[in-house]
Each structure stands twice: as structure tokens, then as C-alpha cells.
Amino acid sequence: MAYPTAPLEVLGLWTGWLLMLMIYSYPLYKENIVFRWAEHTYIAVMLAVNLVMMVTNVNRIAIQPMLQGQIHYIIPIILGLAMYTLLVADYRWISRYPIAVLVGAGFGLGMRGVLIPNLLDQVVSTITPPAGGAAMDWFNFIYIAIGTICAVSYFLLTYEHTGALRYPTRLGRWFIMIGLGAYFGNTVLFRLSMLSGRAQFFLQVLKIIPM
């Protein structure tokens, strides 16, 4: 991508660059007037974009089908508007109905969705012995099985972690820490790779390095 030449694009590039500096003034300096301005600008533009998306989405998935004869789409529109009764003290309770639909769909999909991938698949995967006979494969199998058993026992909430549970639960905590450490390390890659992109952009706009 070459450095833009059209005036509006150049203006846009510099606007983005300045907004970046305004936002980064928070971590690099402190909360200040330019950060506050960028903060409010962002809140406004994001809400505007989301509202426009809302209008286009509702039009596409509800209003257009309704106009084409699928009259039942009036139901979610009414339920959605029922949310706004929150603003009227006496009728606030009506807003619970649309929420009940959301909560029901969320729980229904959530509960049915965890049974196989989160529970059965995980148990099967834990107890499936390695296909080959390599010592390292067997070591990994034993490590994962014992680790998972101990770590799950750490989450027993109605039993004291003493007696027979003392060592498995303590060991379980260590396995959890290893998992979280690896995850943490991996996330460092993602975050810093994005920040590198910004550092690159900073230099590109100033034409210190090519775009």
C-alpha cells in the first residue's frame, strides 16, 4: 500500500495518527484533555456506527421479511420495543419479557452446547491412549490424565481440601498454573504483535519507513 496522495485520504491518515497519539497519551503520560476528547469522540462514533448497524440489521432480518408477508416478525419487534418500558416506572416489569426470551435462548444453547465438546469429548480425549508406542507419547498421556484428574478435584466446592483430597487438589492447582502461564505467554505474542503494528504505522505516517 502506497502513501496516499488524495487530500481527503492524507487528512484521514493524519487524523488516525493524531487520534492514536491522543489515546496513547493515557498510558504514556496520564489522563488529560486530549485523551478525554478522543475518548468522547470514540464513544460517539462507535455508538453511531452501532446504531446504523442496528437499523440496517433490524430492517434486513425483521422489517423486510415482515413487509414481504412474514407477519410474525412483528412479535420480536414488539418485544424489542417492550424493552423501552424500562423508562416508564409503572410498566418497567414488561421489560422482563423480552429479557426472558434472551435468557432462555442463551441458557438453552449454552447448556446443550457444552455437553459434548466441553464434557464428553474432553473425558474421551483424556483417556484415549496414544496410538504409537513412543515413550514421549505415553508420558504426555499420563501427564494429561493425572493433571486433569487433579485439577478437576481442585474445584470440589463442598469438600474440604484435606485428608485424601489434600495432595490431589494442591497438585491440581499447579497444573492449572502451568496452563495459565502458557496461555499468558501466548497472549503476549498477540498483544505485542498488534502494538508493533501501531509502532510501524507511527513511523510510516512520518515517512520514516515506507508504507
Binding site: 493515557y26 496520564k30 489522563e31 475518548e39 464513544i43 462507535m46 455508538l47 456506527v49 452501532n50 446504531l51
Partner: peptide, 18 residues
């Protein structure tokens, strides 16, 4: 209420300092 993940974040950061 703040719409959107990143604006919500900036809003929170500003609020923390103020």
C-alpha cells in the same frame, strides 16, 4: 452505558482517573 468494547474501555480508563 457505553456501546462497543473499545469505547467502553476508554470510558472506563477516563473514569478511573477522574
Amino acid at each position: 452505558f457505553i456501546s462497543g468494547q473499545s469505547p467502553y474501555l476508554t470510558g472506563t480508563l477516563g473514569y478511573f482517573q477522574r
